[in-house]
């Protein structure tokens, strides 16, 4: 607890220094698995009644709530629009130009809302098969990078052989992206499907779209049973929510002890780590207000074209 308090005071210190980012929502803007925002710094500041800073915070909140703000949950819908929050890589001009180009591309083709764990069909123009449209169906196991180089990895088991294709979302060779099953999974990536039995990643190539038109995207809580070792990565080291507990039978006692040593339960209280890993809420709002009108218009246009 003392550790936690000291971290909190560090956070307040930062705010006093004029750092505007302490209202960051405490969630990695790229992880689609967590929708509920844990506003740890803000709620704790509210508890401190005698704290001047806390009162000022409340006032600010009151003022900001009166203004019409964009829905921050939209950041899960367009994750590639938000830059990675590493200061060394940031370049505001480049980001703005890239957003402009991305919106221009979104005007041409529909890039729908999908998450890691959704099943997609992509149509591509293939230089190796001219005057033919090649298509690939697969589950999205990874969503990487942001900006124009945003990429996804699709995986499917075809004729008992696991095949993966990495695609860039804003690649002009992409003709169409269609969501066949819209759902989320428990983990930020599903690379562990490579070491799971084929039934977890087998999808028929002529799969029909199966989307329930409700507001909320369903969360698939399936637990994947892994094959015995050897694996492509050490899946036991990080606690993946989507991996079944039977993984404990596949590793030795020595490994289990090592896993206990590697565990870092205090990391979720590390405010500085959260601060470094998240984009400030203000910046997210800025980007959302910038892209809001355009993406809404594109969505309307593409849905009209489909119907």
């Amino acid at each position: 607890m003392a550790f936690y308090v000291s971290r909190l005071s560090l956070g307040l210190e930062l705010r006093r220094l004029g750092c505007k980012t302490m209202r960051c929502s405490g969630v990695d803007c790229r992880s689609s698995s967590s929708t509920s925002t844990t506003l740890a710094p803000r709620s704790l500041a509210d508890d401190g009644k005698t704290d001047k800073l806390g009162r000022r915070e409340k006032k600010n909140l009151m003022m900001s709530e009166s203004v019409d703000k964009p829905d921050l949950n939209l950041r899960f819908k367009y994750p590639e629009m938000f830059p990675e929050p590493f200061m060394i890589w940031r370049n505001p001009v480049k980001e703005k130009l890239e957003r402009k180009d991305m919106l221009a591309r979104r005007n041409c083709i529909s890039i729908p809302e999908f998450y890691v764990g959704s099943v997609l069909r992509v149509n591509l123009s293939n230089i190796h098969q001219p005057d033919k449209v090649s298509s690939f169906v697969g589950i999205c196991i990874e969503r990487k990078e942001t900006g124009l180089r945003a990429s996804i990895t699709l995986r499917n088991v075809i004729d008992n052989l696991g095949v993966e294709i990495k695609l860039e979302l804003y690649d002009p060779r992409l003709l169409k992206i269609e969501v066949l099953r819209l759902e989320r999974r428990l983990d930020p990536h599903l690379r562990y499907l490579r070491d799971a039995p084929p039934e977890y990643s087998t999808f028929p190539l002529d799969m029909k779209p199966d989307i329930n038109r409700s507001d909320e995207v369903p969360l698939n809580r399936i637990k994947v049973k892994l094959n015995p070792r050897p694996w492509t990565e050490n899946w036991h080291k990080i606690e993946y929510k989507g991996i079944d507990e039977s993984i404990d039978d596949l590793i030795t006692n020595k490994w289990k002890a090592r896993r206990e040593l590697l565990r870092k339960p205090w990391e979720k209280y590390d405010l500085m780590k959260t601060y470094r890993a998240t984009l400030p809420e203000e910046e997210m709002e800025e980007i959302l207000t910038e892209i809001k009108d355009d993406v809404e218009e594109h969505d309307r246009k593409h849905s009209r074209r489909q119907s």
Binding site: D159, L161, G162, V163, I165, K166, D171, R173, R194
Partner: peptide, 27 residues
């Protein structure tokens, strides 16, 4: 990007003149 990656390293056997030994590739 856009080139497939498979779960195993696959090979098709051929003669020296390029004629395959088999009649079908199963994957």
């Amino acid at each position: 990007v856009l080139l497939p990656r498979t779960d195993s390293n696959n090979v098709v056997l051929i003669e020296d003149n390029g004629t395959p030994l088999g009649t079908r590739i199963v994957v």
